[in-house]
Simulated assay, not measured.
Amino acid sequence: MVSATLTAARAAQHAQLIRQIHTAKRDLGLDDDTYRLTLARFAAGKTSSKDCSAAELHAVVEHFHDSGWPRAGGARQKPLSPRQKKMWALWQTLADQGKVRNRRMAGLLGWIAGQTDNQVQRLEWLTPAQEHTLIESLKQWEAR
């Protein structure tokens, strides 16, 4: 009886971790190849989440958190500063114009990482000078 309960609990935990990983994949905008390479990196070469152990799945979830995917029940994300709101608004305008394929925050953060010398991956890590330069770049892109 106890063994069956433990097995059911482990299966439920495994299923929950797989759901988290697939949600993170979607939220982070990962394509299938990138997702499977990430699994292989943190799960001893396995490329399917169903084949992974709970420990391997935890490692993948932690990697996604380290990559910017928010933790459930964790600290709330800071509200955007006025400059960050401006970048977000310009990004959405570019998406509406069809100039940006990924209108989500992950798309903006990817673009920012490519535009900054130190490959900044979070809005709060930008310096005021970087924010100004990025806003001006987005404005010029919109005008083209």
Rank of each mutant, 00 (worst) to 15 (best):
Q97K: 12
R122L: 08
D51C: 14
A95I: 08
A9G: 01
A106I: 01
E124R: 09
A11I: 06
S53K: 15
L57N: 12
L109E: 03
L28P: 02
H132I: 00
T23M: 09
H63C: 13
D32P: 10
S3V: 15
Q140G: 04
T127W: 12
I18N: 04
A54H: 13
G45W: 13
T34V: 15
S3A: 15
L109V: 04
A54S: 15
R76D: 11
Q16N: 06
H14W: 05
V2I: 08
L123W: 02
A129E: 13
Y35M: 05
R83C: 03
L138G: 01
L138W: 00
A59Q: 15
K139I: 01
V100Y: 01
H63P: 08
K25T: 10
D31H: 06
K85M: 13
A24D: 12
G68R: 00
N102E: 10
R101A: 09
T47Y: 02
E62H: 13
A129S: 14
G110P: 00
T47V: 12
I18K: 08
V100A: 01
S53G: 15
A143P: 07
R19E: 10
A143M: 13
A24I: 10
N102A: 07
S48C: 08
L138M: 04
G110R: 10
K86E: 08
A75N: 12
M105D: 03
Q121L: 01
L94I: 04
G110Y: 02
L109R: 04
L90V: 04
L123N: 05
R71C: 01
K78C: 07
L138R: 01
C52Q: 07
Q13F: 08
G114D: 08
G114E: 09
H63W: 14
T116F: 04
L17D: 12
R41M: 13
E124A: 05
W125R: 01
D32H: 13
T127I: 11
H132M: 08
D66I: 04
K50P: 12
S81Q: 10
A15Y: 01
D27M: 06
L30W: 05
A9L: 06
W69T: 05
A59W: 13
W125D: 02
D27G: 09
F42Q: 14
S67W: 00
L126F: 02
F42S: 13
D66F: 03
R83N: 09
L134S: 03
G73T: 01
P128A: 01
T23G: 07
G98A: 00
H132T: 07
L30H: 03
R19M: 05
Q16D: 08
A129N: 11
L6G: 03
E142H: 08
R36C: 13
A11K: 06
S137Q: 12
G73Q: 04
L108E: 02
